[in-house]
């Protein structure tokens, strides 16, 4: 396959970026999207041009490191991560525009690489259960209802990729936030800190500069792990309960 790639190039965080166009030949439909970029980079190195920087690690859809806006869609046209997207989803002759996640709390570091440490800080603000090592009771002493445990699991699969933010017209991280609130809030172990957790995490989210959610729903359709919108409803519900308690 032959492609025309339009790639965002930006030397560093403060530099002006621009979209550069590269023709690329010899792309196989069996390549993953990132392997296609590897090919581009081999070509650039041969030409003496610096390769395109992009984030990735596991390349199997679980670490959440890869992050590309492909033709205006976070992680591209399929419901999966960029690393699991394959070139057979494109056609010979296509033009593909590749941009980094755009959100001010995710500043660009270089080319397609952004800084997502805001997510870590949101977790630090309360996205955990305080269970000191060694003090845990016997695991089966507190049964967890299966349906709640299932819901917790389904949303605990969030990989922290940030596609939800990238896709949201408001630049909101509410889906990410809601996934964590719901995961911990559905488990018996998560109850003691439930109300302070949601207040603290939402506070940190806003403090980081993410936008507010107006329930547009782009986030859920961009999410490679199919986290459903109801986590945002849960987030709102928990927040309201917390506020009623005067937190």
């Amino acid at each position: 396959m032959k492609l025309t790639l339009k790639v965002w190039r930006q030397a560093n965080a403060t530099a002006q970026g621009e979209i550069k166009t590269y023709p690329l030949d010899g792309v196989s439909p069996d390549m993953s999207f990132l392997e296609m970029l590897d090919l581009l980079n081999e070509q650039l190195v041969t030409q003496g041009e610096e390769p395109v920087a992009f984030d990735h690690d596991c390349r199997e859809g679980i670490c959440g490191m890869c992050s590309l806006m492909i033709n205006g869609e976070a992680h591209g046209p399929e419901v999966t991560t960029t690393c699991q997207l394959h070139m057979r989803s494109f056609s010979d002759g296509d033009t593909i525009t590749i941009e980094p996640w755009r959100a001010d709390p995710f500043p660009v570091i270089k080319d397609l690489v952004v800084d997502r440490s805001a997510f870590d800080r949101i977790i630090q603000s309360g996205g955990f259960i305080s269970a000191n090592t060694g003090s845990a009771p016997e695991a089966n002493s507190v049964p967890a209802p299966r349906d709640k445990a299932m819901r917790a699991f389904n949303v605990a699969t969030c990989i922290g990729c940030g596609a939800c933010v990238a896709a949201c017209p408001n630049g909101s991280a509410s889906l990410f936030l809601g996934a964590k609130i719901t995961h911990l809030g559905e488990l018996p172990q998560g109850q003691p800190e439930r109300w302070s957790r949601v207040v603290d995490m939402v506070g940190q989210h806003d403090h980081e500069g993410f936008g507010g959610c107006t329930n547009i729903g782009e986030c859920a359709s961009a999410c490679p792990k199919e986290i459903p919108l109801d986590v945002i409803s849960q987030l709102n519900k928990d927040l309201r309960t917390a506020m009623k308690q005067g937190l």
Partner: peptide, 12 residues
């Protein structure tokens, strides 16, 4: 025990 206390959603 430790993981369950932290909220790891093991199969049930």
């Amino acid at each position: 025990d430790q993981c369950v206390a932290q909220g790891v959603p093991f199969a049930r």
